[in-house]
Nucleic acid binder design. Structure first.
Ligand SMILES: [Mn+2]
Ligand SMILES: [Mn+2]
Ligand SMILES: [Mn+2]
Ligand SMILES: [Mn+2]
Lengths: 219, 219
DNA sequence: ATTAATTTTTAGATTTGTCTAAATTAAAAG
DNA sequence: CTTTTAATTTAGACAAATCTAAAAATTAAT
């Protein structure tokens, strides 16, 4: 059984592993809001527990056991987010902080019954896939909005940034999950994108477009 | 903002205060599963924070601020128990441990929305009153089953022991919340009570009867 | 009022997770 | 291939919460 703190490290390492095979000390420190020296200490501990593979100065990666544990935390985080939005009427920008706490509640029965109560949802309020009981899930192949070209179109199926200010901004300009969008122009000056959905046109900065995930539609 | 641990101390002191005005170090230690020396340390800390009144060797009591904090924890504990039973189909003997964790989740919005989602329940699955948003609740005047005499009758409205083995036992012999019962005899030999409800007669040991709370009916 | 038993507190150590400052190692630049 | 820079690790300290063993205070018993 892992501590609250250990679970946070495993989860962060898991998320950072999406991009690179081996995760650096400084990257973990930044995500977890701590100092590199503290990360080194924890990596040694997690390594001794058989949860991460760690070689001095070379970074860390999750073992099978560590990945299982991390996925369980992610599953709980996303199920609780669905609960908060679907059942308690929270907005999608209000749930992340509370889910950060709820994800550490220890009770296998609770997770399974919550999952059932919610109707076995496949994605959370930000479009992220929810691992099932066995940790399995389909990691959809997203394209970032910023990578689209003029005349490309598709559906908004996720966001890779969960902060409240960011999500509130998307809400305000109408770019929420499920919206069909099309890129009509890319501004020469600042690289921002001109997007059309329904009959509305909005301008999206590169910084914002970076975190919007699109499922491209063809033809 | 209190730590997880501080909240547990406040809650225990609150519960122990029901019986006596000032709470002893050893009593807290026993409830919280720790050593008296640790309790002394914590009492000093809570005293400095203005949450308890504490005089060396004299025991402790909650300040108004401490009681407010304790009641907030109790409110959360009981609301979560209602959620687990009413929405997730847990049995009344399965919820206490999980609620011990959930009661420490920090989010005012979550508590209020959960309360609303549950329909503003007044009592939890064990018959305990749920404090409202402002910490107010009616503490009903219960009579312990063990204090009844032959021919006394009433309704089971609560239990003062939340452990799974105890609650499972009550379930098995049919003594659940809301049942109308009558004492038909008290056994000379061991003081156990002969109880009748509907058309069933059951024998209840003194140890079991001690924790069953009755609302007496007259005439 | 002494003595004995119980309760409570202190003193000093331990564990978990963190930090700062200094020392190493690895990577980048020249 | 040195030198410089950046990343990482060690060493030593610290805060929170706990423990054991010993000392002190309170309460109960003679
Ligand atoms: Mn989240
Ligand atoms: Mn999410
Ligand atoms: Mn309970
Ligand atoms: Mn209860």
């Amino acid at each position: 059984m892992q501590s609250f703190t250990e679970e946070n490290y495993l989860k962060i390492i898991y998320h950072l592993s999406d991009k690179t095979a081996t995760v650096q000390t400084n990257a973990i420190a930044e995500q977890i809001q701590t100092k590199p020296a503290s990360v080194t200490d924890m990596l040694k501990k997690l390594s001794e527990k058989g949860l991460v593979d760690y070689v001095k100065y070379q970074g860390a990666s999750l073992t099978a056991k560590g990945r299982d544990a991390a996925i369980k935390v992610v599953r709980k985080h996303r199920l609780w987010e669905v609960f908060l939005v679907d059942k308690l009427n929270f907005k999608w920008d209000e749930v992340h902080e509370v889910a950060e706490q709820l994800e550490h509640i220890k009770s296998a029965a609770l997770v399974e019954r919550l999952d059932s109560f919610l109707g076995f949802p496949k994605i959370d309020p930000h479009g992220d896939p929810i691992p099932d009981k066995n940790g399995k899930f389909e990691d959809a192949t997203f394209t970032k909005l910023i990578e689209l070209s003029v005349n490309d179109f598709g559906t908004i199926t996720g966001v890779s940034e969960h902060s409240s200010p960011y999500l509130k901004h998307l809400e305000k300009i109408g770019l929420t999950l499920g919206k069909q969008i099309k890129v009509v122009a890319i501004t020469e000056f600042d690289g921002s994108l001109e997007i059309i959905y329904n009959d509305t046109t909005v301008n999206v900065s590169r910084e914002v477009a970076k975190h919007i995930l699109i499922t491209k539609l063809h033809e």
